[in-house]
């Protein structure tokens, strides 16, 4: 057992060590909620391998993030470890150059519209799928599963073709509509297990108390579903802000979201844009996403949430 403890203490630096060291005083007594079996499994020699793999992943991850941040604040960074000068001017410059006021306005507007619409469309459908059986239910289930299982390009290209045919191409409306295609099924998949968790007898009880369908929804279901709706909304928000493929197919200069604007800048003909301008934009993008993720984690435990999503996908 002592040898195993040693292995545990020699975990790689950074986050893992921070997390593990406080648990040491408990010694060989398994921590509460941990069965001895789990501990042995983790403490086996292969644990070394796992921790170093994770360390490599973290180094790569942090390297990527820090490199972009450093780049966005640096000037004349070529053949050295760090840039020669530090500046914040890239931010101001990229803001003007790419008209980020407009781009971010579009991004936020599109994301909010997609969230609201997909919740309004998806939650009632999720309610029916969770609670009822009706003819064709399997078909409906498959219909809502397909956009999530298919590569976005597969339905995105025909959809974009239709959009252009209807004269919606390059408009904000088109961007909102294409983003709804994966978002509505996503809301349905996320909400179905949330609704299944609510005991149907609670709704029956409300009806026996004289509440009509609408009152059951507004007075009972809505308050109980708030955590689920929030979680689904935040995830849809993150997905929509990060959605590149679909948005790129239908957006134009006036309807580009931030992620598409960054891509266009990176691939602009002749590589004309300074790398630091793009880094600055990328940092702004990630900061926004990170803020949303932090908010999301306050409401939901990601592991649980995915567990629920997965159960919905299972059937």
């Amino acid at each position: 057992m002592a040898a195993l403890e040693k292995v545990r203490d020699e975990a790689p630096p950074k986050a893992p060590a921070r997390g593990r060291r406080p648990s040491r005083p408990r010694g060989s007594v398994p921590a509460p909620g941990t069965t001895p079996g789990e501990k042995r499994l983790a403490a086996s020699p292969s644990a070394w391998f796992v921790w170093s793999g994770m360390a490599a992943f973290l180094v790569l991850l942090l390297g990527i993030i820090v490199a972009v941040v450093v780049d966005s604040f640096g000037r004349s960074w070529f053949d050295t470890w760090l840039p020669a000068e530090w500046t914040a001017q890239w931010y101001a410059e990229s803001w003007d150059r790419f008209d980020l006021t407009h781009v971010i306005g579009v991004t936020v507007g599109v994301a909010l519209a997609v969230v609201v619409l997909s919740v309004l469309i998806g939650v009632p459908a999720a309610y029916l799928l969770a609670r009822r059986s009706f003819p064709g239910k399997r078909l409906v289930n498959v219909l809502f599963l397909l956009p999530i299982l298919m590569p976005p390009i597969t339905y995105g290209i025909p959809l974009a073709t239709v959009m252009y045919a209807f004269g919606l191409g390059r408009s904000v409306v088109a961007v909102i509509l294409v983003n709804l295609v994966p978002s509505v099924p996503f809301v349905i998949l996320t909400m179905t297990p949330f609704i299944e968790q609510i005991n149907p007898a609670i709704e029956s009880a409300a009806r026996m108390c004289g509440a009509g369908m609408r009152q059951v929804f507004t007075r009972i279901l809505a308050p109980l579903l708030v955590p689920g709706i929030l979680a689904a909304s935040i995830l849809v928000l993150v997905r929509t802000v990060g959605m590149f493929e679909l948005t790129f197919l239908v957006s134009g200069p006036q309807s580009d979201t931030l992620v598409v604007a960054i891509y266009r800048a990176m691939t602009s003909a002749g590589g004309g844009e300074a790398r630091q301008l793009i880094s600055a934009m990328a940092v702004m993008y990630t900061t926004t996403m990170l803020a949303m993720l932090v908010v999301a984690l306050r409401f939901v435990n990601p592991t649980q949430l995915v567990a629920q999503v997965k159960e919905a996908r299972d059937d």
């Binding site: 005991n199 007898a201 029956s204 009880a205 009806r207 026996m208 004289g210 009509g212």
Partner: peptide, 14 residues
């Protein structure tokens, strides 16, 4: 059911 005027007690309390 909401207009029948019956009361109900559920197994899971609800």
């Amino acid at each position: 059911s909401e207009k029948r005027g019956f009361g109900m007690v559920f197994q899971s309390y609800a």
